[in-house]
């Protein structure tokens, strides 16, 4: 086993480091620490170990070791289930829920990042074992961590839509953001509160693809949730008339956002919106469909 000790150790080390680097808790405070962090770091360590130990097993012609990786995949699918279950349960207690699309996205990310840890560990161990040079292994490990960091970041809302402030107005009992109807508010006190505390924003899609992506209800709920995380929300469970909403203009696909924040700060709201992740599960690219490509860009 002597010849494999260093490669395996390097693999575990860098696989784990890769997981640590990819584990980022931000203003949304997820994963929670300390315990949420401990769970994911431990799983990351296990993933790294699985990845690097598979290499010497295969080198020693123990081909059944591949099944080992299948067990790992099974195990990390459980991670996804665990995250989904926790988040779904917690979502019922949020004033502005994340929505299932956002939750699926987060759960998928956790599963995917464990596979990244496995791959980094595997690659490091393979290179170190075959080249017999530890520094080459380290180089490849650092390279793959950098690649993972580059690949992990998805698109943000600012890149698919133009975000601008909009005026809130009430006509009779109807609430509008710019020219888009939001809802009918029966209670006069609520109308006054809305005029005083409400924020209105318009998202203008930058392409046909983003029109479809933005129409997704999960994506829209994610936008509201992130706004609530960033600015707080001015409502309680028994005040349905103050619930934040998004509505869509059917003609051009613009999205109107109506929101009552605790901290009324339009610039910060725009800043938060710029950074809302575009959910993997909401992305649609109709312009890439065969039907569209064959007809050329007639509709653009």
């Amino acid at each position: 086993m002597g010849q494999y000790t260093l490669p395996v150790l390097l693999g575990i080390l860098f696989g784990f480091v890769g997981r640590v680097v990819l584990l980022k808790s931000d203003y949304r405070h997820y994963p929670t620490h300390p315990h949420g962090m401990i769970i994911h770091l431990t799983l990351g360590f296990i993933a790294a170990s699985l990845g690097s130990i598979a290499v010497p097993a295969i080198m020693e012609r123990e081909y059944t070791a591949v099944t080992f990786l299948a067990v790992a995949a099974q195990h990390f699918r459980e991670v996804r289930n665990m995250e989904r279950e926790t988040l779904t349960r917690m979502d019922q207690m949020e004033l502005v829920s994340r929505g299932t699309t956002y939750i699926e996205g987060i759960a998928m990310t956790f599963e995917g990042r464990n596979y990244m840890a496995i791959l980094i560990a595997l690659l490091t161990t393979v290179v170190t074992t075959l080249s017999q040079r530890w520094w080459l292994g380290v180089l490849v490990a650092l390279g793959s961590i950098a690649a993972a960091l580059y690949l992990k970041s998805g698109k943000e809302l600012g890149s698919i839509a133009e975000i601008r402030p909009a005026r809130i107005r009430i006509e009779g009992a109807d609430l509008y953001v710019d020219d888009i109807h939001i809802m009918n508010v029966g209670l006069e006190i609520s109308r006054e509160l809305i005029m005083k505390q409400g924020l209105g924003l318009i998202l203008k899609p930058k392409s046909i693809d983003s029109v479809v992506t933005l129409s997704n209800l999960g994506q829209r709920q994610a936008i509201l949730h992130d706004l609530a995380m960033g600015l707080g929300v001015y409502r309680d469970d028994d005040k349905p008339s103050l619930v934040p909403l998004t509505r869509r203009d059917l003609n051009d696909g613009r999205i109107a956002i109506f929101f009552l924040p605790q901290i009324k700060d339009m610039e910060e709201a725009i800043d938060i919106l710029q950074r809302v992740p575009v959910l993997e599960n909401a992305v649609r690219v109709p312009t890439q469909s065969d039907a569209h490509l064959e007809r050329g860009s007639v509709h653009e």
Binding site: G172, M183, V185, G186, L187, I189, D238, P240
Partner: peptide, 18 residues
């Protein structure tokens, strides 16, 4: 109605529409 409808919203957990 305006005086009471807020209470209805809170008690019933619904939203008042005109």
């Amino acid at each position: 109605i305006q005086e009471k409808i807020g209470m209805f919203e809170s008690i019933l957990g619904g939203m008042g529409h005109q």
